[in-house]
Design a protein around this nucleic acid. Structure first.
Length: 186
DNA sequence: CCAGTGATCAGG
DNA sequence: CTGATCACTGGA
């Protein structure tokens, strides 16, 4: 089930951990569909957040952040890497959830490269797009969430210290004997 | 450690 | 227009 608008209009600190374990779907022009589990996210929380691009206010680059949640916010860094982020919260609340890692490979630069993200995805609506969207994962997930400082934002003073990065950690199961043959998890 | 690479933004 | 900066990666 594709996530609907009401998921994206929550605030970034709620959505960032809630996206872990969900499924990012990309459909290519050939019709090929690939799916990845979202395993690492970061929350960027509005104009007060010194680490956020929205800290400088509304500019041509950040204008999509001021729309209602559910749109893609993408931008190029270091002249090479397309970053994938999701604009969230209500109109004029420039909050974003940055997709830092997907299952199977690591690093936000690789995410953009793998999914062939480019400028044309700027403002793409995840609730309507035919080439990229996010689905709920119906299987109950056995994982915990590790919180950490965000990466690459040392300039952000007190906001560099915020634990607004969320990492999916697979939780190993413990198996115990029940009777002669049975096993169960605890 | 550091280079690669180009959009973006503030300041003239 | 200029120049610094950058939510990164890969290779000394």
């Amino acid at each position: 089930m594709r996530l609907k608008r009401n998921f994206y209009t929550q605030n970034a600190l709620k959505i960032a951990p809630n996206l872990l374990g969900k499924i990012l779907v990309r459909k290519y022009p050939s019709g090929k569909i690939v799916k990845y589990i979202i395993t690492e996210t970061e929350a960027y929380c509005g104009e007060k957040d010194k680490a956020s691009h929205a800290f400088k206010g509304k500019t041509p680059r950040t204008k999509v952040m001021y729309e209602e949640g559910g749109l893609i916010y993408t931008y190029l860094v270091y002249g090479m890497y397309w970053m994938l982020a999701i604009e969230v919260n209500s109109k004029n609340n420039p909050e974003v959830v940055f997709i830092r890692c997907l299952d199977g490979f690591s690093g936000p630069g690789k995410v953009g490269k793998e999914l062939k993200i480019d400028k044309s995805f700027y403002g793409e609506d995840l609730t309507k797009s035919k080439r990229i969207w996010i689905e709920d994962n119906l299987q109950r997930q056995n994982f915990t969430i590790k919180k950490a400082k965000r990466v690459g934002v040392n300039y952000a003073e007190e906001y560099a210290e915020k634990l607004w990065r969320f990492i999916l950690v697979v939780k190993p199961k413990i198996w115990v004997k029940t009777g002669k043959k049975g096993l169960k998890t605890v």
